[in-house]
Design a protein around this nucleic acid. Structure first.
Length: 563
RNA sequence: UGGGGAUUGGUGUAACGGUAGCACGGCUGACUCUGGAUCAGUUAGUCAAGGUUCGAAUCCUUGAUCCCCAGCCA
């Protein structure tokens, strides 16, 4: 490159990390972590966090990113989610081998930390009910009141805590609380709960525990135990930082630096595990991997590439501003990637029969087609051509509007890689009056080249040979919601009120070129002039199923809209 | 009316007292056997009001608006 390309400036987190490395904090080491709770599938918002955490680690010499499952609530977590999360992270392109951790592995240490705090007089067992604790906590504007158990002798708390662990107390009968300040303006500091009784078996520790640490008591210490240097989390934990600081300080253990950033929001979709779960449970979509879902599993099935998601995450940046990123940026990222890598094929979604009346019956030609004009190394293939073809119904207009360049009565267009054809007749179904087929003539001098008289046409259509085409089902997806911000419920609506009723359209009688007969599940293609498509796992030997990942930009659609 | 954050074109993001830049989107045009892609041009912004300064998106003051917090969820 002739001129020095200006480096994109690092986001504020990378700047902080760089400064820490520069001045030798943590001996120059960088250890980050991605800490999902295994209670749902990963979505595009998690992808942002994954790219940030693994990215920051990779950019620093010797940097490491841990995958840690925050599995502190056995009532909501399941092994199937652990598996799905690991699969999604690997698919996204990140390696956590040798660095897979579980908060549940620290249960014994966490228990000992809790005992230590009781011994120091910094924690106590409280037997107020959940409801009472809430009332004692006060409100945003009024201070709370001390629990009557706050001055319980240390020995008594120690004994009670031991009995909680031993299963001698019922669920909800007692909790362990930190003794901080019931009048703190930060509600997180009003004697927060550290442990609760949950006589529920845990997916990894079985029935060894009948008490479990709450997130706030587990998270910071887990980071500490793992030697995390930079604990990157979302904005809502900013208020919790003083609490984490307090625990770490009282315990006198390694203190990671927590930095908060804004979570990702994307227009016309929802990025919240709870809401995505609701869509699944209420049957608005067909599952976590429904191609309309912004889950990594859904996007994978839809045809998104890992690279396109990573690029998207890098482009949205990292700040503390609560933003709503335009879904067009996501769509651009995947087009950008697929444009360079997806082989082109011809597929007719809504077939209209075309008979070339002057083309010999029974004749078949094999025409050479380019697999990817962006990448000549991808070579060429042969596409069969014959007398009866299918073209796209929308590529013909009996009464063409202004600026419509495609086929119309008496008009000539090119068939991609083949001949110039001219429409000479429109044949209707006598009963329905619908256009049944088109009769066209072809110019034998125009095969793969401009005819000798130099005639030009304004449109090139894709097509398939009727006798050679393969049948397929194509699923067209549109945005899941009709509102840019479906979760804005200030007008009293629920986000499910804004679901797009047309987010899925299934086309059952599509015809695709024969080279696709061997297409394997997950393979991605550009259907020329239409968009990027990917083979769905529902495909069977008897029937291919394609998902539309994203349409090509369609300038005719824009012209038509403004006509 | 407690505490914690935030505010730069339509959207996202840079600029760290010295020319408000980049990307997406929009709009023009060129080119084209994908109305794709590509290329070129264009559009449009510092929340407000004061102050400091030769000079302010950046520093100070006041105000406005938005987000988060009253789970034994994470």
């Amino acid at each position: 490159m002739a001129t020095t390309e200006s480096k994109p400036s690092a986001d504020f987190i990378r700047q902080i990390v760089a400064e820490d490395v520069r001045c030798g904090r943590n001996a120059g080491r960088v250890v980050t972590r991605f800490p999902p709770e295994p209670n749902g599938y990963l979505h595009i918002g998690h992808a942002k966090s994954i790219c940030l955490n693994f990215g920051v680690a990779a950019e620093n010499a010797g940097g490491v990113c841990h995958l840690r499952f925050d599995d502190t609530n056995p009532t909501r977590e399941e092994p199937k989610y652990v598996q799905a999360i690991k699969e999604d992270i690997r698919w996204l392109g990140f390696d956590f081998s040798g660095h897979e951790y579980y908060a549940s592995d620290y249960f014994q240490e966490l228990y000992e930390y809790a005992v230590e705090l009781i011994r120091k007089g910094k924690a106590y067992v409280c037997q107020l009910s959940a409801e009472e604790i809430r009332r004692y906590r006060g409100t945003l504007t009024e201070p709370g009141r001390d629990s009557p158990n706050r001055n319980r002798p240390i020995q008594e708390s120690l004994d009670l805590f031991r009995r909680m662990r031993a299963g001698e107390l019922a669920d909800g009968a007692a909790v362990l609380r930190a003794m901080i300040d019931m009048a703190s303006p930060n509600l997180n500091l009003r004697d927060p709960v550290m442990y609760r009784i949950l006589k529920v078996p845990h997916q990894r520790t079985g029935d060894r525990w009948s008490i479990y640490p709450v997130y706030d008591f587990a998270h910071g210490q887990s980071d500490s135990i793992e030697g995390i240097t930079h604990s990157l989390c979302t904005l809502e934990f900013e208020d919790h930082r003083p609490l984490y600081d307090w625990y770490l300080h009282e315990l006198g253990i390694h203190h990671p630096r927590q930095i908060e950033f804004a979570r990702l929001n994307v227009s016309f979709t929802v990025v919240s595990k709870r809401k995505l779960l609701q869509l699944v449970e209420e049957g608005h979509v067909q599952g976590w991997d429904d191609p309309r879902m912004p889950t990594l599993a859904g996007m994978r099935r839809r045809g998104y590439t890992p690279a396109s998601i990573r690029h998207f995450c890098n482009r949205v940046g990292v700040t503390k501003f609560n933003s709503l990123t335009d879904i067009a940026l996501l769509e651009h990222s995947v087009r950008d990637d697929l444009n360079q890598h997806a082989p082109r094929v011809m597929a007719v979604l809504r077939p209209l029969r075309v008979v070339l009346v002057d083309y010999p019956e029974g004749r078949t030609e094999q025409l050479e087609a380019v697999n990817n004009p962006q990448d000549p190394a991808m070579g060429t293939r042969r596409v069969p051509f014959s007398r009866v073809l299918y073209i796209e119904r929308e590529d013909f207009r009996e009464d063409p509007p202004r600026k419509f360049f495609r086929l119309a009565p008496g008009r000539e267009v090119r068939l991609r890689y083949a001949y110039l054809i001219k429409c000479v007749d429109v044949v209707r179904d006598e009963e329905t009056g619908e256009i049944a087929e088109l009769h066209c003539t072809f110019d034998p001098e125009s095969r793969g080249r401009t005819p000798p008289d130099g005639r030009k046409v304004k449109a090139t259509l894709h097509w398939v040979s009727a006798a050679h085409a393969v049948g397929a089902e194509v699923r067209l997806y549109d945005r899941l919601f009709v509102r840019p911000n479906p979760t804005d419920e200030k007008d009293g609506t629920d986000f499910t009120d804004h679901l797009n009723p047309h987010s899925l359209e299934v086309l059952g009688s599509c015809r695709v070129e024969p080279s696709l007969a061997q297409a394997t599940v997950g393979a991605r293609y550009q259907f020329e002039r239409q968009g990027y498509f990917c083979v769905d796992p529902d495909s069977a030997p008897e029937g291919l199923v394609f998902n539309r990942t994203v349409p090509l930009r369609d300038s005719w659609a824009k012209i038509e809209k403004n006509l």
